[in-house]
Amino acid sequence: MVAALIGLLITILIVGVVAAIIIYCINLLPLDPPFHQIARVIVMLIAVLIVLLRALPLLGVAIPS
């Protein structure tokens, strides 16, 4: 259980850093403000889904392959 929690923390850290880098790169693009916001929301949704997919098995929820 402790190993799984450490793995989850590492996943959260890596996903957070990657999402922050992608959002930083999106902010550098010359896009209109609504497109910036849409792109940031999509990146954050993907990051949250990745973390949830990693965390749900720890709670006993079966995830279909």
Results as ranks from 00 to 15, higher is better:
residue 1 M to F: 03
residue 1 M to Y: 05
residue 2 V to L: 09
residue 3 A to W: 07
residue 3 A to L: 07
residue 4 A to L: 11
residue 5 L to Q: 01
residue 5 L to M: 02
residue 6 I to P: 05
residue 7 G to I: 00
residue 7 G to K: 02
residue 7 G to S: 06
residue 7 G to C: 00
residue 11 T to W: 06
residue 11 T to R: 08
residue 12 I to P: 04
residue 13 L to H: 09
residue 13 L to P: 03
residue 13 L to V: 14
residue 14 I to A: 01
residue 15 V to P: 04
residue 17 V to E: 07
residue 19 A to H: 03
residue 20 A to L: 10
residue 20 A to I: 10
residue 22 I to P: 04
residue 23 I to L: 01
residue 23 I to W: 01
residue 24 Y to Q: 10
residue 27 N to P: 05
residue 28 L to C: 14
residue 28 L to H: 15
residue 28 L to S: 14
residue 29 L to K: 12
residue 30 P to V: 14
residue 31 L to Q: 10
residue 32 D to S: 13
residue 32 D to K: 15
residue 33 P to N: 02
residue 33 P to M: 03
residue 33 P to C: 03
residue 37 Q to R: 15
residue 38 I to L: 07
residue 38 I to M: 08
residue 40 R to F: 03
residue 41 V to P: 04
residue 42 I to Y: 01
residue 42 I to C: 03
residue 43 V to P: 03
residue 43 V to S: 03
residue 44 M to L: 14
residue 44 M to Q: 10
residue 44 M to E: 11
residue 44 M to W: 12
residue 44 M to I: 11
residue 45 L to M: 11
residue 45 L to Y: 10
residue 47 A to K: 03
residue 47 A to R: 01
residue 48 V to L: 00
residue 49 L to T: 15
residue 49 L to I: 13
residue 51 V to K: 08
residue 53 L to R: 13
residue 53 L to K: 13
residue 54 R to K: 15
residue 54 R to M: 12
residue 54 R to L: 05
residue 55 A to G: 09
residue 56 L to G: 06
residue 57 P to A: 01
residue 57 P to K: 04
residue 57 P to D: 07
residue 57 P to Y: 02
residue 59 L to V: 11
residue 60 G to C: 01
residue 61 V to T: 09
residue 61 V to C: 02
residue 62 A to Q: 12
residue 63 I to P: 09
residue 63 I to G: 06
residue 63 I to Q: 06
